[in-house]
């Protein structure tokens, strides 16, 4: 079966983002970018399915300008077979992304689409579920285990109370949580090989989807800064402060 893995280029997770002085957005100039950590877990899961003989082909797709080819090459180095860049320099809502991916799903007919549960920039947690709704597929979100079982896939999900396992008809959508797997590092030979793997570029405008914005970003501001407090010398002092100064314990 074919597995489709949509990935996103985002700020590196170690970087603390800054807000622009004019409050129009965050400042991404000269900031280190990387594949979204949850998307990397999605690629790893798909590659493992291929290594296990369950998947026949792994296709990575990313929506963005030319720079996201870097992350597609990363996915290819991790083991994806080919890549598709849907070219646009527009800032898209998750709904648009899901609609573009829906077209890719129609064309490629994957049995499984694995996405990250959220991207660490917009923190939306929407695209996988939206794609599932648009394609009429079942979804296993926040997955910590994925097991293909004939015509179905069993997905164990991280939920507020613990874990929940659901069985989904295939084709299906899975979104990854942190503990699904630990992604490998790309080896140098695989990075070299990835340069020769196919990467198709398709203009977003060719998909015939209305990409007009559904939301307006009015402003972006820094969060309220916490004042660093004091260092206490002993447990006695800590307990005294919590009782008499902060008044949070009695």
């Amino acid at each position: 079966m074919k597995v489709l893995v949509p990935i996103k280029r985002v700020i590196d997770y170690n970087v603390k983002v800054r807000v622009k002085a004019d409050s129009s957005n965050v400042d991404l100039a000269n900031v280190k970018m990387a594949i979204n950590p949850f998307c990397e877990i999605a690629v790893e899961e798909a590659v493992r399915l291929k290594e296990a003989g369950t998947a026949t082909e792994v296709i990575a797709v990313s929506i963005g300008d030319k720079s996201c080819q870097e992350q597609l090459r990363t996915a290819l180095a991790l083991g994806a077979d080919r890549a598709i860049q849907i070219d646009t320099d527009q800032n898209l809502d998750s709904l648009h992304v899901a609609k573009l991916l829906q077209k890719v799903v129609e064309e490629e007919q994957p049995q499984l689409v694995i996405l990250g549960k959220q991207s660490i920039d917009s923190d939306n947690n929407q695209t996988g579920q939206m794609l599932a709704a648009l394609t009429g597929m079942a979804q296993g979100t926040f997955a910590s285990a994925v097991n293909i079982d004939g015509e179905k896939v069993n997905v164990t999900r991280e939920v507020d109370g613990g874990l929940q396992t659901v069985a989904l008809n295939l084709p299906a959508i899975v979104t990854t949580d942190l503990r699904l797997n630990e992604p490998r590092y790309a080896s140098l030979p695989n990075i070299m090989k990835a340069k020769r793997k196919p990467l198709a570029v398709k203009p977003a405008a060719d998909f015939g989807i209305d990409l007009a914005a559904r939301t307006t970003l009015l402003k972006v501001t820094p969060p309220a800064e916490r004042q660093a407090g004091i260092v206490v010398e002993s447990i006695d002092e800590l307990v005294e402060k919590l009782k008499n100064e902060a008044k949070v314990i009695s």
């Binding site: 947690n125 709704a133 926040f142």
Partner: peptide, 23 residues
């Protein structure tokens, strides 16, 4: 924005053809 809401609401948004504003 707990696991149930996070799970099904984006489906609702997509079926209604609207954007979702999360969290």
């Amino acid at each position: 924005a707990l696991t149930t809401g996070k799970n099904f609401m984006p489906r609702v948004a997509a079926l209604l053809d609207v954007a979702q504003i999360s969290d």
